[in-house]
Structure formats: structure tokens, C-alpha cells
Nucleic acid binder design. Structure first.
Lengths: 178, 178
DNA sequence: TTACAATAGTTTGAAGTCAAAGTAATATTT
DNA sequence: AAATATTACTTTGACTTCAAACTATTGTAA
């Protein structure tokens, strides 16, 4: 992520003012929120990828690995991976290709359905996932960039956004992303 | 964005439980927040790109255009665009290439510094930026997916995250992203 | 004045995203 | 049983991101 001089003002708050001055005041708050999420994503992705780079992993690959770590048998159909990570089938193909190239995952035939490809984590993949998780916990997850009080508040707010997008139906909690 | 059946539970809340059960409890909240931001970004980017697609724009191109709309002379050095949008110089080159291909922007020489390329918005670019903004206001910014009360709360929380990442120094507000 | 450092942007390569189209296999309908 | 629809994944192409290296220009130090 490109580094730059720290600005003395909040650029998104000022953009919100520009929006209001352009007679789009009603949408200004929403614009500022959307832009904030985009920027927060950029910041966190850069931090996560930096923490993962010693393991030659990216966040996309790491997420796929962790899905397999937490799966009961250490293997899942590619379609299920795409469903859980909410990415396009072509993206799953791409990520599993690369994990396979690094011997962290192996593709297997489905026992009864030849349309279906299973991704199975390897012992090496499991070990790397564990070490990468510990690095991520230390470098990012234990200090996500907001105070303790804010973490739950932000999570709840973003959960509302995810629910309204149809990610899930209720706050009763069962199975998992990973 | 791939559509999928709505889950009856919150996948990220469940991942947080997995994290706690794996003895990474201290980092579980941060992990859930980071993953929430990633997913919120995905949702919002898909909605924004869908609203922009009739104009043959993407969010990256749209942001660059709006930066020029709000600039005082309708033109900026590419380095300044990268600084404000907080993207890599190569990304700016790429986005300006495409805006140029669509005749929405023109590259110009700097009057006194031959290292510097200026991006100047065209009349056609201005018109499209306005129409695209109106479409975005209607489709996304006026209904970002959380209730009115939550918008400011989320904005404030994400501002804390951006500040801690060095985006800006204080909450006194001056100039702008765009 | 010259040599060196820094800046601005471009090019190349890698990574991951999605849309569309294609291939192969399975499920359903007739 | 055969035809048709659907599913699962892959391939291709477009888009955007960043890292590293490169080229050209300007600024600074000696």
C-alpha cells in the first residue's frame, strides 16, 4: 500500500462536505460510510497481506486454507468453498490452483459425483495455516486498529449491513465461515 | 458477486467461536472485525459497480473522475491522484489509461516539470461523473444497508481505524478526498 | 559545473476478482 | 430410454491492485 504524508484533516469527512455542497446532502452520510469501508478494507488487507507474506500466502489463500482446517474431514468441494467465502467459482479455481502449486492442498475426485472436485488440505498446509494464524493473531487480530470498546460496536454495525445484503437471516448462530 | 442461499446463521460470528475454541480467544474479536470489513467491502463494491456499470465505469475510475470534478481547475498530477486515493502509482496509470480510452480524461504535460503528467477531465467526463453520482446516490449512498442511527456510528468507528493507520491526524476537518 | 539523490510516471509481472462461455456429469422430465 | 435441464468446475478475458525495475527529469550536494 502506498505510503503518504499524514494529512492534517480527515479526507472522507471533507468529501462528505463536498457532497453536501453539491446538493447531494441526503446521500452524503452514505457516501462517507461506503468510502470509509473501502478505505478500511484497503488498510486491513495491506496489514494482513504483510503479515502473511513470510508464509508466501495472501489473504484469499489463507481464508481457503482455514476453511479446510476447520472442516471436519479436511476437505471440501470447490463449490462449497466458494459458497462459504462468497467468491466466484473462477476465483476458487484460481486460489486452489495456487495452493496446489505450493503443496498446501491437493485436488481429489469426489467418490460419487464426477462433476465435483474436492480440495483436501495437506499436513504441510495444516502446519502453515497454524503458524500463519499465530502470526496474524499477533500482528493484526489482537490490534485491529480501534479501541476494545469499538470492536464489538463495529462488528454489530457491519453485521447489520451483511444481514441486509442477505448473508444470513438471524442472529442465532450455528455453523461457520471457518 | 456470486449469489448464494441465505444462511440461517452468521458465518463470521461462528468463525469467531471457532477461533475461541482454537485457543485464540484473545484475537477472536479482532479476527471477526477484520473479516467483517472484508465482507462489507465485497458487498458494497458489488453494489457500487452494479450501479456504475450502465456508465461503463468502475468504482476506481469513478473515484478518479470525482477527484478531478472537485479539483479547482479540473486537472491534477497523477502523483497527487495516487496520494489522495491512496493507491499505488501503477494503479493510477492504469485507471487514467482507461479513462483516457473512454475520452473522459486527457493527459497533459506539466507547464514547468517534465516529469509530471497532468490528468484533465473532459466536458464529457464531467457530464458522466454527474450522472453517475446521481445514480450512485439513488442506488447505494442513500441506502447503504444500515439504519440511519448506525451510519454515523460506523463512520466514527472506521475513522478511528483510519486515523490509527495514519490517514490523518485530527478530527479538525479541512480539504478533501474529493 | 558536475555528480549524485530524489522524484514522477511507466512497464512488467503476479495476484485475485467477476462475467461469460465452455465442457463434462448428473438430475429431471417426457 | 431418450431428451432436456441443471450443476460443477474450468477456461478466457477484463479489471484493479501492488511490488519491483526502469526511464527521464529535477533538485541538491560537493
Amino acid at each position: 500500500m502506498a505510503r503518504r504524508p499524514t494529512l492534517p484533516f480527515d479526507p472522507i469527512a471533507e468529501a462528505r462536505r463536498n457532497w453536501s455542497n453539491a446538493d447531494w446532502g441526503e446521500a452524503a452520510e452514505g457516501m462517507a460510510l461506503v468510502t470509509s469501508v473501502m478505505r478500511a478494507h484497503q488498510i486491513l488487507l495491506a496489514r494482513v497481506d504483510e503479515a502473511l507474506s513470510p508464509f508466501e500466502l495472501t489473504f484469499a489463500r489463507y481464508e481457503a486454507l482455514m476453511l479446510l482446517v476447520f472442516s471436519s474431514r479436511g476437505k471440501l468441494p470447490l463449490g462449497k468453498i466458494g459458497e462459504r467465502l462468497q467468491v466466484h467459482p473462477a476465483s476458487v479455481t484460481n486460489v486452489i490452483d495456487r495452493l496446489e502449486q505450493h503443496a498446501l492442498v491437493r485436488r481429489e475426485r469426489h467418490p460419487t459425483d464426477q462433476r465435483t472436485t474436492l480440495a483436501a488440505i495437506t499436513p504441510q498446509g495444516r502446519r502453515l495455516a497454524k503458524r500463519a494464524s499465530e502470526a496474524l493473531n499477533a500482528a493484526v487480530f489482537s490490534q485491529p486498529g480501534v479501541g476494545d470498546g469499538r470492536v464489538q460496536e463495529l462488528f454489530d454495525g457491519l453485521a447489520e449491513l451483511r444481514r441486509s445484503a442477505g448473508d444470513f437471516e438471524d442472529s442465532t448462530e450455528r455453523s461457520s465461515t471457518f
